[in-house]
Design a protein around this nucleic acid. Structure first.
Length: 490
RNA sequence: GGCCCGUUAGUCAAGGGGUUAAGACACCGGUCUUUCAAGCCGGUAACAGGGGUUCGAAUCCCCUACGGGCCA
């Protein structure tokens, strides 16, 4: 079996978006499944749009997701450099060879001329393809055109008959008639290679065995195959994975809300949740499981089980998966990840004093069952770190408005104040005894207390909250609530 | 416009000639509970349309529609 080598080749023109991350993940899973190499290559040939910030963001996002590359930027490898902008010499050589062998030619037509001819062709109902007029230029023509100061492009001499078939692992054989492919440009007038050319040269030089990429590249593949053939390169295997679309079925873009990995990270999604969700978008394991540990993903991943149809990106399931990992994840790790979110809201000092860590961890343990993201942890836990100044209106109506509500809180406060050991169990016992003595239901006592100490009607178990808050705070909040009721509801 | 790909519930998605057409998210109901979640139990909901082929089509073929992509 020949070695599996795959690559992910993003353009550094923005942050790593969900679609790119999914493509990267499929490549990564395929490589890990086969014990092959996952290569990261940066397609920065578009010097206008490529930025260093984007480059760094993409690398950071890949690392954050855990998609480590075996060869690539900041890592190196035997087939570098891994930035296309630094590989000009390879493209130049390949193009020169094609020119020499008569498989490519210089074209002096200007963009304006081309546009004009295209317009005419369309008006006459002909396909707007390049008419190949420079393919058969005489040396005299060429000198004349060059004297005019024209900067030539290099075009591939495409056969005008026959078909080119893409053998695609996901979609089967897809054929294109060669006469629908024009003599496309492989090197621009500024000397830069086009995508269809550079990618072939690099994939060959880097010994890529399987090209796994988004479906939008399927239509470009016959052109690339023609380049492979002209250059005498062996063809890799192709696998075009379906696109990820926005809820309105259009291409995913910024106007659809969060679409980049960074944004999800900042909202408090866990990398393993994003990986898990993305894996399920376009691929399905054989069983019924939706929560799939990474190991198992690697074991069971195969391109044969990648679906053909585009998927609409919907965050509801992602959020559910995230909630799952938040609940099940190692508590220390979740705590470490949650702390920055609490600090960002000003609920915790930065850095967090070592002595406070256990307390914070206990709070995270109490609230993480009822939230879906780390961002929500901060909301859910706010009253542990800041005073309660307002009470949820619905709760006030239900629990504070009854006659005697304030007196009841006072009474409860007395009981708690008398406790020698302020623990959840002791508080609960005191409360149950008090409720019984007063002949009221436990709820009639529990609900107003919860509202008094948290300002809310929902949350973790009441006595867990009391213990976490500590005696002093609880007593203080009970008196404050009692006072508030007398002042506002009397 | 030409070429290419696709179409199973709101969403992901299994199923590839014979199935009561899986499962998950979401939604709704029940249960548990001091609340809210989680968990558990249950429910609503789908083969784009039309022609073939076949004893039999979600599954194979053709057309149409719709969606998407590529080329400028």
């Amino acid at each position: 079996m020949s070695t599996v080598r795959v690559r992910f080749a993003p353009s550094p023109t923005g942050s790593l978006h969900i679609g790119g991350a999914r493509t990267a993940l499929f490549n990564w899973l395929f490589a890990r499944h086969h014990g092959g190499a996952f290569v990261l290559r940066i397609d920065d040939t578009d010097t206008e749009r490529s930025t260093d910030i984007s480059y760094r963001e993409i690398l950071a996002a890949m690392r954050w997701l855990g998609l480590d590359w075996d060869e690539g930027p900041e890592k190196g490898g035997p087939y570098g450099p891994y930035l296309q902008s630094q590989r000009q010499e390879f493209y130049r050589q390949a193009a020169a060879r094609l020119l020499n062998e008569g498989k490519a030619y210089l074209c002096y037509c200007t963009v304006e001329e081309l546009a004009a001819r295209r317009k005419i062709a369309q008006a006459e109902g002909r396909p707007p393809m390049y008419d190949r007029r420079c393919r058969y230029l005489t040396p005299e023509d060429r000198t004349r055109l060059e004297k005019e100061g024209r900067q030539p492009v290099i075009r591939l001499a495409v056969p005008d008959q026959g078909t080119t078939t893409v053998k695609d692992i996901v979609r089967g054989d897809v054929s294109f008639d060669n006469d629908t492919i024009d003599d496309f440009i492989i090197v621009k007038s500024n000397g830069m290679p086009t995508y269809n050319f550079a990618t072939v040269v690099d994939d060959h030089l880097m010994q890529i065995s399987h090209i796994i990429r988004a479906e939008e590249h399927l239509s470009n593949t016959p052109k690339q195959i023609l380049v492979y053939q002209a250059l005498g390169y062996e063809l890799p295997a192709f696998a075009h994975v379906p696109m990820i679309l926005a809820p309105d079925r259009s291409k995913l873009s910024k106007r659809h809300g969060a679409t980049s990995v960074e944004e999800y990270r900042d909202e408090g999604y866990l990398p393993e949740a994003i990986i898990n969700y993305l894996a399920l978008l376009g691929w399905s394991p054989e069983g019924d499981e939706e929560i799939i540990p990474l190991e198992e993903m690697i074991n069971s991943f195969s391109l044969e089980r990648v679906s053909k149809n585009a998927a609409i990106y919907d965050t509801k399931k992602l959020t559910w998966i995230n909630g799952h990992y938040l609940r099940e994840g190692d508590l220390d790790r979740i705590t470490r990840l949650a702390v920055p979110f609490l600090q960002a809201k000003g609920l915790l000092p930065d850095p967090l004093p070592e002595k406070d860590y256990d307390h914070v961890r206990a709070i995270i343990a109490a609230v993480r069952d009822r939230v879906k993201t780390l961002g929500e942890v901060a909301d859910a836990a706010s009253y542990f770190f800041t005073d309660v100044t307002t009470y949820e209106e619905k709760g006030v109506r239900k629990h504070f408005s009854k006659p005697g509500a304030a007196a009841l809180l006072d009474e409860a406060r007395e009981e708690l104040a008398a406790l020698p050991q302020f623990t959840a169990a002791a508080a609960e016992e005191a409360y149950r005894t008090l409720a019984e003595r007063k002949g009221i239901s436990t709820g009639q006592l529990f609900h107003p207390t919860r509202l008094a100490v948290t300002g809310r009607t929902m949350g973790p178990g009441l006595f867990e909250i009391l213990e976490l808050l500590g005696k002093e705070t609880v007593l203080e909040r009970l008196s404050r609530a009692s006072r508030w009721i007398r002042e506002n509801l009397a």
